[in-house]
Computed example of a mutant assay.
Amino acid sequence: MAIANESHQEEKNMNEHHGAGRYWLIWGVLLVLTVVTVVTGRMHLPSFGLLLAIVIATVKGTLVTLYFMHLAEHQGVNRLIFAVSIVFVILALVIPMADLGTRFRGANPPGSQYSDLQPPDIGTGAQRGRFGGGIRSTDLKDSPPPAPSH
């Protein structure tokens, strides 16, 4: 029995069996992409490491969807839904990255790769407190001694 959005030709194509060679090839490509992901994940790639990981994950997900979930054999609405979902995932990733990369530099957290500000010097003294208050020993060298209290 055919599904509502499939034609008789698709039903005929789905009844034909494919060899296992295609699945072994896709599985091998997925293994290679997994090794590439692991190797590049251990490298320090600050400028394009995240983009590379997203591209590899998208390619792997697309291969799984097209061949192991048999979307390559379908036509019509199934492919349209898949394409629209890929577009929305890309937009959900690109828009926040574009916002972070183009915002005012001072609005980014100090010490991040997008900020010109240096992270604050926390110091080692216990008197610094939760928010970095207190007196550092280097501050005492240049300041006059405190006035005696009565």
Rank of each mutant, 00 (worst) to 15 (best):
R128W: 08
S149G: 02
E10L: 06
D99A: 13
L45Y: 10
T124I: 10
L51R: 00
V55F: 07
G49D: 08
L91C: 04
R128L: 04
E73K: 12
A53Q: 15
M69A: 09
E16Q: 12
L63W: 03
V38Q: 04
I86F: 08
V94G: 02
L80E: 04
V59T: 14
E6W: 15
V29W: 05
T124E: 09
H8Q: 11
Y67T: 00
E6F: 07
K141Y: 12
R128K: 11
G125T: 07
L50N: 03
T65A: 14
D121G: 01
A126T: 13
M1L: 09
H150Y: 11
A57T: 02
G133V: 07
S115G: 05
F82E: 02
Q9P: 00
P145T: 05
V36E: 08
Y67M: 05
A4R: 10
L93F: 13
R128F: 10
Q113A: 05
I54T: 06
S112M: 06
G49Y: 10
G123F: 10
N13K: 10
F131H: 13
D121Y: 09
I122W: 15
I81H: 00
L50M: 08
G61H: 03
A53D: 08
P96Y: 08
G21Y: 09
R79F: 07
V64I: 15
H70E: 13
G21Q: 12
A4F: 07
M97K: 01
I56C: 04
V29L: 15
G101I: 06
T102D: 00
G19Q: 03
V77P: 00
L31V: 06
G129R: 01
T62C: 00
Y114H: 06
V36Y: 09
G129N: 10
R103K: 13
Y67D: 02
Q127A: 10
Q113C: 00
H17V: 15
L66I: 05
Q118E: 12
Q118F: 02
Y23E: 11
G132H: 11
V36S: 06
N5D: 13
A147W: 06
G41S: 10
D99N: 06
G28L: 14
S115N: 15
V38G: 03
P120W: 01
T34W: 05
R42A: 10
E16V: 10
